[in-house]
């Protein structure tokens, strides 16, 4: 096989791949035209959770920041939405903008103490931060204490609009991670993950790179939180800042395959479809969910995508610049 031939077939493959991806996106965007209300409803959940999972993947899978505290940002998004629309009569667009500002500021503030911690200390530190925010909101009269707020303006949002919003978030989250990894920062991240000491010697700014990823993930999770609560429409501090969100992010990423872009896509789909299916087993659903998590990890410790990649060498979104085959 000549050099040229290999190249051209590689281009062809890239062409096929992007064609398929574009076709799938179009098919998904048109879902409101042919899908039922239930399909749209499930779609909202899948793509919202995809965005959450992909961002947690960026943190844990690529930046080595295993966080159990990013539910804080979901709660912040939820309460921004509630306060802006209920207390001040603002709109949804305004909620998104303000939530971004708050998310960036808050993640900058907490990054000072949090980035001093490493490894498991970071994991627990983020959780303690999140619990502190939860306690703060529970005791804050402005947000009606622990009694919660009804996001009444969200009652009448058409489901298709939410679906398209969630789809956009999901796609952007995948694209964002893809382009971050293809950029120079992506190289730094990989170097940092594989050997932090050597990377730093070679001039990778550990702190800055990590901080940028942290900011991006936190902001994006906050935006997703706003969208999720436009659907849920009733926010209480406990559930909004609950560890359940972190559990679902860990589930999606680890089951799908950590450190792969495809992993969270598979993981989010599995998680949401599984939760829907488990509504058929009221009272038993969490036992089954927990068992599935344990069994999958025992069978495929690198997640589903890790197992597929190990067997077939297949990657949908290759972040490596391929030299030659």
């Amino acid at each position: 096989m000549t050099h040229k031939h290999v190249l051209s077939s590689a281009y062809k493959l890239i062409g096929i791949k992007s064609g398929v991806i574009v076709a799938a996106i179009i098919a998904l965007a048109l879902l409101p035209l042919y899908g039922s209300a239930h399909a749209i409803n499930v779609g909202i959940l899948v793509f919202s959770y995809l965005a959450l999972g992909q961002m947690w993947n960026l943190l844990a899978g690529y930046s080595g920041l295993v966080s159990l505290g990013h539910q804080a940002f979901i709660g912040i998004g939820a309460y921004t939405l509630a306060v802006v629309t209920v207390s001040y009569g603002g709109g949804f667009f305004m909620s998104f903008l303000i939530s971004i500002v708050i998310a960036v500021l808050f993640s900058l503030v907490i990054s000072f103490p949090i980035f001093k911690l490493s490894g498991v200390y970071f994991t627990i530190g983020t959780w303690i931060v999140s619990e502190s925010v939860l306690m703060f909101f529970r005791n804050w009269r402005f947000v009606n204490f622990d009694a919660g707020m009804n996001i009444t303006r969200a009652f009448r949002i058409p489901q298709e609009n939410l679906y398209l919003g969630a789809l956009a978030l999901g796609i952007v989250s995948v694209a964002l991670v893809y382009f971050i990894l293809r950029s120079k920062m992506g190289l730094s991240l990989m170097a940092m993950r594989d050997n932090p000491a050597a990377a730093e010697v070679r001039g990778v700014h550990l702190y800055k790179t990590k901080l940028i990823c942290f900011l991006i993930a936190s902001t994006f999770i906050t935006i997703t939180g706003v969208l999720l609560y436009m659907n849920i429409a009733f926010v209480m501090p406990g559930p909004a800042f609950g560890i359940d969100w972190a559990v679902s992010m860990v589930f999606i990423v680890v089951i799908g395959g950590i450190g792969t872009i495809e992993g969270p896509i598979i993981g989010a789909a599995i998680y949401v479809f599984l939760r829907q299916f488990l509504f058929n087993f009221p009272g038993m659903s969490l036992i089954i969910l927990g068992s599935i998590a344990v069994i999958v990890i025992l069978v495929a410790p690198k997640g589903i995508m890790g197992a597929i990649h190990g067997k077939f060498g297949f990657e949908l979104f290759s972040v490596r610049r391929k030299m030659e085959d």
Binding site: S9, K12, L13, I16, K17, V20, I21, A23, A24, A27, L28, L31, Y34, G35, S36, H38, A39, V42, G43, V46, E262, I265, I266, A269, F273, Q276, F277, F279, N280, F281, P282, F312, F314, L316
Partner: peptide, 29 residues
């Protein structure tokens, strides 16, 4: 090469179809 492309296509389409397949849904418990 071909096999990979088919896998890629399958992954995307399974995803789109599974959403559309929610139309009917399953019987409640």
């Amino acid at each position: 090469m071909k096999r990979r492309a088919i896998l890629a296509a399958a992954l995307c389409l399974v995803f789109a179809l599974s959403l559309a397949a929610c139309n009917g849904g399953s019987a409640p418990g």
